[in-house]
Amino acid sequence: MTRAWKYVGAIWLALVVVLLYLPILSVGLASLANTRYMRFPHRNWSIGAYTDALSQHETLVLHLTSLKVALLVTVLSVILATLGAMAFARYDWRGRSAFQKVVVLPIFFPQPVLGLALLLFFSALGFTPTWKTAVFAHMVWVLPIVTLVISIRLFGYDPAQEDAARDLGASRWQVLREVTLPYLSPGLISGGLFAFLLSWSNLPLSIFTTGADTTLPEWLFSRVATNYAPVVSAIAVIATLASVLLGCVVILILRLIDTHGIKGDGDHG
């Protein structure tokens, strides 16, 4: 690699970063304007949108709705995906390879189609769409992805470790707590992070399946389309910061597991 190529590489990287983050930055800038229309450059700078956003009860309700949907999706899909991934990675059963193909199928549907299909499905069964049906809808799409993420971790796993633990006196519960879960935890955490963020930011499925409830992305979308005010951008920024914060916390936890789990005294019991 010559010096010239190194520069080209650095410029390329810088371009990618700028192009990725500039749009997000522009939302941030828009939130600081005091106008009814998004336009640059600003005539009046103001943080009024943020004080508005923080004082509005709606901000809290939107975040709470999205949060409870995302948290439920995370917990349920991590549990189900772990069971599915274990069944797939560990045991040989009839239909195992069919399962591998079917399980990822929902990712290939365009989400609006999937959303409409689910709405029809819910009404056929007589369910009124609420945030709870949205949890189910999100899981249809999120579960395959989480299953894949956890499977990757499981493939490197030697099930004989569990036999060894049993042999050394561990009860079934101790095997799970001392061997299986500590090994799987990085996969569970990154799977959970995926689940949370995919649900947190999902629009196409929510639009069809939340009924009278409104999630953050739904509200943002409708307000951007019709009734824009800087407070919309302000709430978008707050929501983005919330998910960035979550991401940072998870990365920190993974770091801790990595260093502490192997080297440290690790007295988990």
């Binding site: 789990g261 192997i262 080297k263």
Partner: peptide
């Protein structure tokens, strides 16, 4: 060997 790889 089935060593616990996540432990020292």
């Amino acid at each position: 060997l089935a060593l616990f790889d996540h432990r020292s």
